[in-house]
Write a protein that binds this DNA or RNA. Structure first.
Lengths: 341, 341
DNA sequence: CTGTTAGCGCGTTCAT
DNA sequence: ATGAACGCGCTAACAG
């Protein structure tokens, strides 16, 4: 790659000082018109652009936001990034994306790289392994230095920073209520292990809805999926039982879509024999047969809000107390739970 | 945010020079053991880390790769990013992702930001608008300066740089052949406008396969979708005709899934009345009913290869001539085209 | 009008 | 064993 042109080179070319060139290119009125135009023409010709690194170092500001997410091949997370990108660009920031791959070690690595001056702030959704082992020291050392940080979706309560979450309890509640409204009596819940906060919160919503209607919780209807094992086999156990449930609430789209397929294989009619509802994050729900009713999560909005909180924090236009924004969900009713007369 | 600790501060704290501190923290044997240990302890306590910007400026190397893609909420592109991330991290690079949103203007903007010293090289998939208007000056000025650049998927033939593409012609060919093998006589093609290179290449494969079998091309069976208009209505016209085709080849997953739904609504049996095949990029194909046969694209591998080409170029370990890697596709046969006896 | 100086944070000769 | 000086590229306060 050819070396880029610098102020220094231009200056030596014209036999003037570096600062003269700098001023000329900024259109300063301190510089004579003639000199300014000649310098400008030369700079244009050689396509001069100020070196960003130098500017960032000088200004002590990168205008870059770091984002650390567990996975990128995931509709929900990519939607959030899209929202972050959009808001950030609008405010003159760029985005640097790193993937933790659900690994604690990789997350810490990403922390180290990004907080060494490369970014003005960080937006993070916590890796599963980190959640599981409750190792939060890297977060704590960040907040101790008041480094601008926003947690989203998978958050940590004990860390003091701005946060954005989905109303997961409300989503689970709405979903379970809807199932009861369409006549379900025995609603199975397919959820994650409890240390995954979002799964646990959605379960809370489910429990709350049932209790509200005076239904006693049947623990045998709650299934905890281990994502490292075979999904199909685990979900089969929900349906291939002597007395299958008449409704399923799954905490994500993949679980729901698998349940749907297994139910059909077993010859159950949906929603008549069994109604199914999921939390959506992708496009699958639209294209199953029948299409799946789901709780919509609004990841894009979440990303925008996270970016807004962070940039306000960076630019010191935020209130001193940390905010916690809650993104509400809504039900998208499709034919897996309800057939329009 | 609290100011970060610097060599300068440590130096003044100990009453020594900056370079002494620098050497001490690098474990240089020029520094007496005693001083070194005291400085090290102090630095550890205050969690000293060298400022990346300063290092980058000094070393004239950022170890960051810029990526510009048309969309991020797109399974194929996020898979590619994943591959780029993986390979890049392994080689000590980080990734900065920008989205052009299919807009020429945004693409140029991203170019300007990223090529100002922030990254060592760029991996790009061209925005639709740029392809449509054939405005490639920003690419040309980059290659003129020998800036490390890799194009992937949506490439530009006339730009001299390393490239990675899917074997789109081969994919279209395999797909059409498969349809003929399972007995299709009248294969409709649902494709994009021709300026979208990948659509046009897949069409070429389709044409080649048909000609190979001595079938005359029926232009009325080729449908060009305008993505800015209603998808469902456009695809309806393929199927809701007096004499519908007995097979459909769609150049992406969404087109295929829509075709499947419309065919079922019309009461056609799949694959008996009509076989359907798509190019996959997401998870939809697995969960439709019946599941969709598709051409698999291996985006992750594509990302890895793109990153490898770029890093070799950056580190001057690449051959002088530009490479063009072709990622081959394979058919994933499911029940939308073939029912296993 | 133009130039000098200093500083952002770091590493690296080259002196002492 | 330690430090001074320089350069990476840029801007801004200050001097002339």
């Amino acid at each position: 790659m050819k070396p880029r042109i610098t102020l220094k080179k231009i200056a030596s070319e014209f036999g003037v000082s570096i600062s003269t060139v700098s001023k000329a290119l900024k259109g300063s009125h301190e510089i004579s018109e003639e000199v300014r135009e000649r310098i400008q023409a030369y700079a244009d010709y050689y396509n001069y652009k100020p070196n960003n690194l130098a500017l960032q170092l000088r200004n002590q500001k990168t205008s870059v936001i770091g984002v650390i997410i567990p996975e990128i091949v995931h509709h929900f997370f990519s939607t959030v990034i899209d929202g972050i990108e959009h808001y950030a660009n609008q405010k003159g920031y760029n985005v640097m994306v790193c993937v933790s791959n659900e690994s604690y070690e990789k997350e810490v690595l990403n922390f180290n790289v990004l907080t060494n001056g490369s970014v003005d702030g960080l937006i993070v959704s916590v890796a599963r392994e980190t959640q599981e082992n409750q190792k939060f020291d890297h977060f704590k050392s960040l907040t101790k230095d008041e480094f601008p940080l926003v947690l989203f979706d998978r958050i940590i309560d004990e860390i003091n920073c701005d946060k954005v979450v989905i109303d997961d309890v409300g989503g689970g509640y709405k979903a379970a209520n809807h199932l009861m409204e369409v006549g379900a009596k025995r609603i199975a819940l397919i959820t994650t292990e409890d240390y995954v906060t979002v799964g646990s919160l959605r379960k809370q919503g489910y429990l709350k809805a049932l209790k509200n209607k005076g239904i006693t919780i049947d623990e045998s209807l709650i299934y905890y999926i281990d994502d490292s094992k075979n999904l199909y086999q685990q979900i089969e156990k929900v349906i291939n039982v002597p007395n299958p449930p008449d409704a399923i609430l799954a905490v994500n789209e993949i679980y729901a879509a698998n349940a749907l397929i297994i139910a059909k294989e077993r010859g159950l009619s949906i929603p008549n024999d069994i109604a199914i509802i999921g939390f959506t994050s992708g496009l699958i729900s639209e294209f199953t047969s029948p299409p799946l009713t789901c709780v919509e999560q609004h990841g894009y909005l979440m990303g925008e809000q996270a970016a807004e909180l962070l940039i306000n924090r960076i630019e010191n236009t935020a209130p001193k107390d940390f905010q916690k924004e809650v993104i509400s969900t809504n039900l998208k009713i499709r034919k897996s739970t309800f057939i329009d007369g």
